[in-house]
C-alpha cells in the first residue's frame, strides 16, 4: 500500500489530498515512483481524462513497475524520465505553453510534489488550484538552514547535511518557495552529542 496518513502537524507543513478528475481542456500530471498508482486510479475514475493528458513520470527506484500500465491508460503524451532535474526543462516548456483550463495533478513523494508545485506557481497558477496526493516514500527534501544546501530524500532524523556535513534535525517547518523542510543543527549547544538517527515516522 503506497498511502501514508501523516499525523497532524504545524500550519506550514503541506497537507495532501486525493486526486480527483476535474473538468479541463488539458491535464498535466507529474508523478514519481508510487505516484503512478494515484494516476492509474485517476484514469479509472474518468475514462475520458487520459486522452487530453500529458504525464511526466519519474519511476525512481520503482523501475519498470508502473510504466506499461501508465502507457496502457492511454495518455495523450507520456514522458518517462530519470530525475526531476532532467525533466525540469520539459515541465517549464509545457507550463509555458499552457492555456486557461489546464488542470495540474501532482503525486508521489513530497520532494516531487513540492518542486513541481514551484514550477506551476512560477507561471501564475495559484497553489490552492493544484491537486496533490502523496504516495510512496515519506522521504523529505531538506534545506540546511546553515549552508542553504538541499539534501534530497532524507529518511532519518537526525541526518547529515550532504553539503556542509553538520548534523541536522528534521523540522516540520516547510517553505513552498524552496520546496523543502528546514534542517537545523542538532548539537550546537552540546557539540558531538548527536542522537542515533531514527527512521522518519517510525
Amino acid at each position: 500500500m503506497s498511502k501514508f496518513q501523516f499525523p497532524e502537524s504545524i500550519l506550514s507543513r503541506p497537507v495532501y489530498g486525493t486526486l480527483a478528475p476535474r473538468p479541463g481542456k488539458s491535464h498535466l500530471m507529474i508523478a514519481d515512483a508510487e505516484g503512478a498508482e494515484a494516476l492509474l486510479e485517476l484514469a479509472d475514475r474518468d475514462e475520458n481524462l487520459m486522452a487530453n493528458s500529458h504525464i511526466i513520470y519519474l519511476p525512481k527506484d520503482t523501475g519498470e513497475t508502473y510504466v506499461d500500465r501508465l502507457r496502457a491508460a492511454g495518455p495523450n503524451q507520456l514522458y518517462v524520465g530519470p530525475s526531476f532535474a532532467a525533466a525540469t526543462q520539459r515541465i517549464r516548456h509545457v507550463l509555458g505553453q499552457a492555456h486557461m483550463g489546464l488542470q495540474v495533478y501532482l503525486t508521489g513523494t513530497e520532494g516531487l510534489i513540492g518542486q513541481a508545485m514551484n514550477e506551476a506557481t512560477a507561471v501564475g497558477i495559484p497553489h490552492t488550484a493544484i491537486q496533490t496526493e502523496h504516495r510512496g516514500s515519506v522521504a523529505r527534501r531538506m534545506q540546511c538552514v546553515h549552508c542553504k544546501g538541499i539534501t534530497e530524500d532524507v529518511t532519518t532524523d537526525p541526518f547529515v547535511c550532504s553539503h556542509c556535513g553538520l548534523n541536522l534535525f528534521v523540522r516540520d517547518h516547510y517553505s513552498r518557495r524552496l520546496a523543502a523542510f528546514q534542517g537545523v543543527c542538532i548539537d550546537a549547544e552540546d557539540p558531538g552529542n548527536v542522537p542515533d538517527p531514527v527512521e522518519l515516522y517510525s
Binding site: I10, S12, V145, K148, R171, H173, R176, L178, Q182
Partner: peptide, 17 residues
C-alpha cells in the same frame, strides 16, 4: 527565524512553529 526560509509564506505559515 530565517527570512530566507520564510519569505513568501503567509501569516499563519511563518508563525507555524
Amino acid at each position: 527565524w530565517s527570512l530566507d526560509f520564510d519569505i513568501g509564506m503567509n501569516f499563519f505559515e511563518w508563525h507555524a512553529p
